[in-house]
Computed example of a mutant assay.
Amino acid sequence: MDNYHIVLTGKGWQLTKEGDAKVLKAAETKAELIEVAAVFLKDKTASLKIHTSDGKIQEERTYPRCADPAASKG
């Protein structure tokens, strides 16, 4: 499983893959980038860590996302 991070930089909010400095996606707002990241990660098996503006992890999401949480086997 690959790990991705949404972080605030001097150039706005950026999506990066853990261990790689390359910026995969960028946006002016965190909310916008979360939507973009969801589309980008839709067909991947991944963990997305969404950070606060001071760098702390606010939330973690796993992909693919289950449309119906009741259908989850875990």
Rank of each mutant, 00 (worst) to 15 (best):
T29F: 14
V36T: 07
E32D: 15
D20Y: 02
L33E: 11
E18I: 02
K44R: 13
T45S: 13
A31W: 07
K49S: 11
V36I: 13
A27L: 10
E32P: 08
D43K: 12
E18P: 02
K49W: 06
V23N: 00
A27Q: 11
T45Q: 15
L41R: 08
A26P: 01
A31F: 09
D20K: 09
E32L: 14
K22H: 05
V36Y: 10
L48M: 07
I50F: 02
A27G: 12
F40V: 03
L48G: 02
T45K: 15
K44F: 07
E35D: 08
T45M: 14
K42Q: 11
K17P: 00
E32R: 14
I34D: 03
I34H: 04
E32Y: 13
D20W: 01
V39P: 01
K17Y: 02
K49P: 00
E18Q: 13
D20F: 03
K22T: 11
L24K: 01
L24S: 00
L48R: 04
K17Q: 13
D20E: 08
K30V: 07
K49V: 03
K17W: 02
V23Q: 01
L33M: 10
A37R: 02
E28F: 15
S47P: 04
K44T: 13
E18K: 09
I34W: 05
A38K: 08
K30R: 15
A38I: 01
A21K: 08
V39D: 08
S47W: 07
K22D: 03
D20H: 04
L48I: 09
A26I: 10
D43A: 13
G19I: 02
L48V: 04
D43L: 12
I34V: 11
F40I: 04
T45G: 13
V39K: 10
A46M: 11
L41M: 06
A31H: 08
T29N: 14
D43Y: 11
A27F: 05
V23C: 01
K25H: 10
I50C: 05
K42H: 12
A38R: 11
T29A: 13
A27K: 12
E28S: 14
K42A: 12
L33A: 08
D20Q: 10
A37I: 03
K25V: 01
V39H: 06
A21V: 05
A37H: 04
I34P: 04
E35S: 06
D43P: 00
E35W: 03
A27H: 13
K17H: 10
A26W: 10
A26R: 11
I50Y: 01
L41Y: 05
E18M: 09
A46C: 11
I50R: 02
V23R: 01
K42P: 05
K44C: 10
V36Q: 07
K17D: 00
V23L: 01
E28M: 15
L24R: 00
V36A: 09
K44S: 14
V23F: 01
K44Q: 15
K49L: 08
T29P: 14
V36P: 02
L24Y: 00
G19P: 03
L24G: 00
A38Q: 09
S47G: 09
I34C: 06
A27W: 01
V39R: 09
E28H: 14
A21Y: 05
A38G: 09
L24W: 00
A26Q: 15
D43R: 10
